[in-house]
Design a protein around this nucleic acid. Structure first.
Lengths: 115, 115
DNA sequence: TTTATATTTCGATTAACAACGAAACGTAAT
DNA sequence: ATTACGTTTCGTTGTTAATCGAAATATAAA
């Protein structure tokens, strides 16, 4: 269906969602970790994640209080797989993305999220 | 730049623009031919084409009264090339797209556009 | 030089979207 | 049970985008 393809590309048409995807390509993350990097409201990040989940780019796994998000690398949808591969290559040389990567490796979830 | 990548995906986030791209993958077309297939106002089609041109997917070539649009297959931007290849494959089995293809092969530009 | 035609630009309208805060939900700790 | 915390849902607001028709532009024909 043509509309589904359009929605897939629409999911990639936002810079914050591109940053989220590139972070998830390196590591599984929870909402509050992503919130800390993007400096957005938790509700906004949650909405971005639901869009990426509904289009098939990421999956969620509940673990107690937390919800872990990770790339849907086992998808059987060729479009999604192709686009994940494309993004992984095309976003590596971006300055903002590289900075996000540094921040995310430095973050300790327990220190950051457990107030 | 991250924003430029987002804009590229945004250009693909509209079903009418996806239909235009698939048509141009088969043949060079003018505005009025595309208008006839999509059944939109000429001004709307013109706007869609300018978005696809600005993001680097297509090129225009003026020829008298007409403006011919065609795929920018000679681009040096890897993202654009990858996405053109991806679209060419992913959209082939869509019903609407196949119907567009049939319409466009039947169309005679002179009969259609020269009133 | 008019006239006709293909296309673009402009302005207005309507719909979709990103962002936020407040409130609700679910789970774990006290 | 109550409290605390991570997350989601909901309602609102401001911005962007798709569409159209009317007017402007450019080129060819009469």
């Amino acid at each position: 269906m043509l509309n589904k393809k359009a929605k897939i590309f629409q999911a990639l048409s936002d810079t914050n969602r591109l940053r989220i995807l590139k972070m998830l390509l390196n590591k599984t993350l929870c909402v509050c970790e992503i919130t800390a990097v993007l400096k957005l409201a938790p509700s906004t990040v949650s909405k971005h994640l639901s869009i990426l989940k509904d289009t098939g780019f990421i999956i969620e796994e509940k673990s107690g209080k937390w919800v872990n998000y990770s790339m849907n690398t086992l998808t059987r949808e060729p479009v999604i797989l192709s686009l994940i591969t494309l993004l992984n290559y095309e976003l590596t040389h971006d300055e903002i993305v590289q900075n996000d990567g540094r921040m995310i490796t430095d973050i300790d979830r327990v220190k950051l999220c457990c107030k």
